[in-house]
Design a protein around this nucleic acid. Structure first.
Length: 469
RNA sequence: CGGGAAGUAGCGCAGCUUGGUUAGCGUGCCUGGUUUGGGACCAGGAGGUCGCGGGUUCGAAUCCCGCCUUCCCGACCA
C-alpha cells in the first residue's frame, strides 16, 4: 500500500513544501515577534553538526574564537560610510534602557566589523602582532521585511571571522584560504552541496568591502542560495578605526582586514539542496542521526535484538538512534524519512529468525537484507557510499540546471529553470538592470575555466545569473 | 515597506454573506482494548478568552475601526 503523502510535493508548491519540511521534521517554529525563529532540538542538532565541522576548519586555518558584545554604539556604524549606508535600513536600535532614554542609541549588531575593528586597533601595535585572526560564534539582527525560517530571519546565528594583515596580498590570500579550506571544503565534503565559487559584482558586494567572494548553491527548484561569503575589506575599516601597526622600519602602516561568515541559512540550504517529496535528506557525514534502528514489531526478542544492533553500531562510531516505540510501523518509518535520516535498519522477527536485518537507504529507497554479524563492518562504508551518491546527484543537478547562453534575453529565459552563464561584458551595466527587473540577479563572476577571479576588472569574465532566495 | 490572501482546539479546515441556545468536522492528543513487515482499528475522553484591542447592538466568530502575526508577489539582505 503506497504511503499517502504527508507533505506538499515539491512540484506542486515548492515554498509550501519547504515550510512543511521545516514543521514536520521538527526543525523550527516562528517566534512570537515577526521574523524571529525558534530552532527546535532536531534543527539545532543539525546546526551543531554544521558548527562543529566549520569550527574545526576555522581553527585549522589558524583563527581563534573570541566573543564581542551584542550592543554596539550607534556612532561606530557611522565611521565607515558605505557600511552604515548598507546596514541602516536593517538595524534594530535600542533607545531606552534602565527606564531612561539613552544619550546615544545602541545598535543591536547586524555584524561586528565595527566593534572588532575598535579592538583590533587597541591590540595591534607591531607587525609582530599580525596577522590577527579572530572568529566569533554569535547571533546577529538584521530587520527583515520578508522573513522565512532559516533563509531570512531577523535574528540568526552565525560565525563571523575577522582578520587583520600587514599587506593586501596576505589579506587576500587568507580570505581565499577561508573560502576554499573552510567553506568550500565543508560544503563539498560534509554537506555534499557543491556550489559555484566566484566573486560578487560591485552591486552585490558587502557594504564596505573591496571584494566579496561567495559560494552560490543551486537549490532543487533551480534558485540560488548564497551559502557563505568571504570579504576583502581593504583598508576601509582600518582607516575608519585607526588599525595601524608599526613596521620593521618603524613606520606606522594601515592594516588590511577581512571578514567572512556562514549562518543558520545553511540549514535552509541543506533542506533545499537535498530534500525530496518524502522530506529532508541529510548527508551521512552531516547527519546528527546517521542510522535509525527501528523495530518492526513490539516484541521483547525484537526489542532486545534492536538494542544490541544499536549498541554495536554506536561502538563502531556510528551516530545511532534506537526507535522501539509502540505504534504503527509505517508511521514511524514515515517520521524518520521526513527527518532525513540517511539509513534505516529494520529489525523484525522474520528476518531475525534467519539472523538478518533489513537496511533501507533514505536517498534511493533501496532495501537490502544483511546478516547481523556483518552490520558493523558494512554500515560505515554504506554511509560513505550514500554520501558519495548524494554529492554526485547534487553535482549533476547543479550542472543540469546551469545553461550557457550568450545574451541577456536568453539568460532571462534560462533562469526559469535555474542558472544561466554568459559573458560578464554582456551584462555589466544595463544588462544587470534588465535582469534585476525580472528578479534575476548576478550571483557571481568567474573566469572561463570556472576559477575565481582576483577582481571584477579582469577581462573576459563570465557571470552566473539566477533567481535567488 | 507597497500589492494580494488569511488568522476559529497541536495541525488542516467549515461556520461569517443574511448577528440569535451548549461553535462544529478531519487529524493529532489522553484512557482501555485489539493491533504492528510502509502513515492501523474500535470504544470512551480531554482540549477553544473564535489573533489582540476598541466600537455598533438587547445580543458579535459573524458588522465597523485600529493593531499584531502568517503566506504569496515585489523592493532589501547571510
Amino acid at each position: 500500500m503506497a504511503a499517502q503523502s504527508v507533505l506538499t510535493s515539491q512540484s506542486k508548491d515548492f515554498p509550501r513544501w519547504y515550510q512543511d519540511v521545516v514543521a514536520k521534521a521538527e526543525l523550527a517554529d516562528n517566534g512570537p515577534v515577526r521574523g524571529t525563529m525558534v530552532i527546535r532540538p532536531y534543527g539545532y542538532a543539525i546546526w551543531e553538526r554544521i558548527q562543529g565541522e566549520i569550527d574545526a576548519r576555522i581553527k585549522a586555518a589558524g583563527a581563534k574564537n573570541a566573543y564581542f558584545p551584542l550592543f554596539i554604539p550607534e556612532s561606530y556604524l557611522s565611521k565607515e560610510a558605505e557600511h552604515v549606508e548598507g546596514f541602516s535600513p536593517e538595524l534594530a536600535v535600542v533607545t531606552h534602557a534602565g527606564g531612561e532614554k539613552l544619550a546615544e542609541p545602541i545598535v543591536v549588531r547586524p555584524t561586528s566589523e565595527t566593534v572588532i575593528g575598535e579592538f583590533m586597533a587597541k591590540w595591534i601595535q607591531s607587525y609582530r602582532d599580525l596577522p590577527l585572526l579572530l572568529n566569533q560564534w554569535a547571533n546577529v539582527v538584521r530587520w527583515e521585511l520578508r522573513p522565512r525560517l532559516f533563509l531570512r530571519s531577523s535574528e540568526f546565528l552565525w560565525q563571523e571571522g575577522h582578520t587583520a594583515h600587514a599587506t593586501n596580498e596576505d589579506a587576500s590570500a587568507y580570505a581565499n584560504k577561508i573560502h576554499n579550506e573552510v567553506y568550500d571544503d565543508f560544503l563539498v565534503n560534509v554537506m555534499a552541496s557543491p556550489t559555484y565559487l566566484g566573486i560578487k559584482p560591485p552591486s552585490e558586494r558587502f557594504a564596505g568591502a573591496i571584494n566579496s567572494m561567495t559560494c552560490e548553491g543551486v537549490m532543487r527548484d533551480g534558485k540560488a542560495l548564497q551559502m557563505a561569503t568571504s570579504h576583502e575589506l581593504g583598508q576601509n575599516f582600518a582607516k575608519a578605526f585607526d588599525i595601524y601597526y608599526q613596521s620593521e622600519e618603524g613606520k606606522a602602516e594601515l592594516c588590511y582586514t577581512t571578514s567572512w561568515g556562514a549562518s543558520t541559512r545553511l540549514v535552509g540550504g541543506l533542506i533545499m539542496a537535498h530534500g525530496d517529496d518524502a522530506g529532508l535528506l541529510v548527508p551521512p557525514r552531516l547527519a546528527p542521526v546517521q542510522v535509525v534502528v527501528l523495530t518492526v514489531r513490539d516484541e521483547s526478542e525484537v526489542n532486545e535484538a534492536a538494542d544490541r544492533v544499536a549498541r554495536s553500531l554506536r561502538d563502531a562510531g556510528v551516530r545511532v538512534e534506537l526507535d522501539v516505540g509502540r505504534g504503527s510501523f509505517g508511521r514511524r518509518v514515515t517520521d524518520w524519512e521526513i527527518k532525513g535520516v540517511p539509513l534505516r535498519v529494520e529489525v523484525g522477527p522474520r528476518d531475525l529468525a534467519q539472523g538478518l536485518v533489513t537496511l533501507v537507504r533514505r536517498d534511493s529507497g533501496v532495501k537490502a537484507l544483511l546478516a547481523l554479524e556483518k552490520l558493523t563492518r558494512e554500515v560505515p562504508p554504506l554511509l560513505e557510499a550514500i554520501q558519495g551518491d548524494l554529492l554526485a546527484r547534487a553535482l549533476a543537478h547543479r550542472d543540469d540546471h546551469t545553461h550557457d547562453v550568450s545574451t541577456v534575453g536568453d539568460a532571462l529565459d534560462a533562469t526559469k529553470d535555474g542558472f544561466a552563464r554568459l559573458p560578464w561584458d554582456e551584462v555589466a551595466g544595463e544588462g544587470e538592470g534588465a535582469l534585476n527587473a525580472q528578479s534575476v540577479s548576478v550571483r557571481c563572476l568567474q573566469r572561463s575555466d570556472g576559477s575565481m577571479p582576483s577582481s571584477d576588472t579582469e577581462r573576459e569574465l563570465f557571470c552566473l545569473v539566477a533567481k535567488s532566495y
